[in-house]
Design a protein around this nucleic acid. Structure first.
Lengths: 207, 207
DNA sequence: TAGATTGTTAATCGATTAACAATC
DNA sequence: TAGATTGTTAATCGATTAACAATC
C-alpha cells in the first residue's frame, strides 16, 4: 500500500498470471523476462518494471522461477483467499456469470443469487439458490460476502448498488450499462459489453 | 485513417456516446465540455482533445449540440450501419450474449449460433437458430457476417479462430480465455471475464 | 459588442523503453 | 570465474492537462 500502483500495471497482472499458469501446465520451470516478452508480445523491460512494483521475484543470471512467480502474482491479486460472491439479477447473463464463476476453479465462489422475479425464486443455478431480493439483508447478515455481481437492467442498477453499499458491500462487479456512483471505500469493476462491442465496431471501420 | 488514433481515445468514445444518449433522453439540447466533464468526472480538456481527433463538433460560445454530437460519435463508432454477428459456442455464456446482442437496440444483429453439441443444434435462442459447426462454411457463403463472437472453452478457441479467419471473418469478439493469434487484417476485441474479476480482487485487497 | 466556449498549441505529467551496473 | 539476466536508473515517448487566441 506504500506507493500507489497504476491501473495500467494492474490490468496487466492477470495476463502475466495466465501465461505463467500455462507455462506451469507445460512443465516449464524457469523463464527469463526476454523469453516471456516474446511469448506475450510485450517488452522485457515492461515485464521487469511491472514485477518490480511488487518486489524482486527473479534472480540475476537465472530469470524467474515459473511456479514461484505464478504463486506470487496470485497472492498479489488476492487469489490465495476465497471470495464469496453474490449476484443480483438472475436473468440470462446473470445465470451465465453464475456458472462461469463457479466453473473457473478456485478463489471465487458464487453463494447466492437474487432476483425480484418470483418465478425464479427457489430455483437453483449451478447448485446455487435464487432468493428474492427481499431476503438480501437477511442473507448478508448470515454470510460473509466479498463481491456482489450486478447483472440487471441499468435502470435498477444504481438503486440496487446503493442498497448493497448500505448493507456493507464494498466490491461490485458491474455488468449494468451505467457508471455507478459509490463512496470511495467501495470498489467497482465494470464490464461494459456494449462498450466493448462498439470498440470492435470502430476498429472494423478502420480497416 | 490519416493519423492513427490511440486506443486510449477509442476506449473513451463509447462512454461519451452513452452519456450523450442519456442527455438526449433527458431532452438536453446543448452541453459545454465543462458541464459534460463534471457529469463524467473527466477533464474538459480531455473531452475537447478527444473529440478534436475526429473533427470540430462544437461551436465557440455555445458548446456542443447533444443530438448532433451523439450522431457524429455514432458514425465514428460505425453504429450507423448494421453489423451481422454470429456466435460460436452456444453454451450458457453464448446464449446470454446472443440475447444481449439482440436486445441492445440497433446496429448489431445476431444471425446465427454454432455449436458442436448435437443436442443444441436446431434449437433457437431469442429467435436465432443453432447450427452445427459443420454448417459454418455454408452459412458464411450465404450470409454476410461482420463479427464472430467466440464463447467456447479456451482449448478450442484458437482452432476455431483459425477456421473463421480462413473463411474470411475479419472481426472477432473473443470471450475465450486466450489471446488469439490472428493475421494483422483481423481485429480481435477481448472480454476476459476472469481478468476483470482478478483486477477487482486486487483492488479489494488494497483497501 | 461582450461573454462564453471552442479548437489548438504549449507545458506537464506519467508510462514505456533503453541502458547498464549489480549480482547470481 | 565468465555469462546471463535481473533490478533499477536514465532517456524517451505519449497522453493528459493547462492556457489562450480564435470565433461564435
Amino acid at each position: 500500500m506504500e506507493r500507489e500502483i497504476s491501473q495500467a500495471v494492474i490490468r496487466r497482472m492477470p495476463r502475466y498470471y495466465r501465461y505463467l499458469g500455462e507455462l506451469l501446465d507445460s512443465n516449464v520451470e524457469r523463464i527469463s523476462s526476454n523469453e516471456l516478452s516474446k511469448l506475450m508480445h510485450v517488452t522485457a523491460s515492461q515485464i521487469r518494471q511491472d514485477l518490480n512494483n511488487f518486489g524482486g521475484f527473479g534472480q540475476q543470471g537465472y530469470g524467474y522461477n515459473v511456479k514461484f512467480l505464478h504463486d506470487e502474482i496470485g497472492k498479489i491479486l488476492g487469489l490465495n483467499q476465497m471470495h464469496n460472491v453474490i449476484l443480483i439479477g438472475a436473468g440470462n447473463l446473470g445465470q451465465a456469470i453464475a456458472n462461469y464463476v463457479n466453473f473457473e476453479r478456485l478463489s471465487f465462489r458464487m453463494i447466492g443469487l437474487f432476483d425480484v422475479n418470483e418465478a425464479k425464486v427457489g430455483k437453483t443455478v449451478s447448485g446455487v439458490e435464487v432468493h428474492h431480493m427481499s431476503e438480501l439483508q437477511d442473507f448478508l447478515m448470515n454470510n460473509r460476502v466479498d463481491i456482489a455481481a450486478l447483472t440487471l437492467p441499468k435502470d435498477n442498477a444504481e438503486k440496487v448498488a446503493e442498497e448493497l453499499v448500505e448493507l456493507g458491500i464494498t466490491a461490485i462487479w458491474n455488468f449494468a450499462h451505467v457508471d455507478l456512483e459509490v463512496p470511495e471505500n467501495v470498489v467497482v469493476q465494470n464490464v461494459h459489453l456494449s462498450d466493448s462491442l462498439m470498440q470492435l465496431s470502430y476498429n472494423i471501420t478502420q480497416i
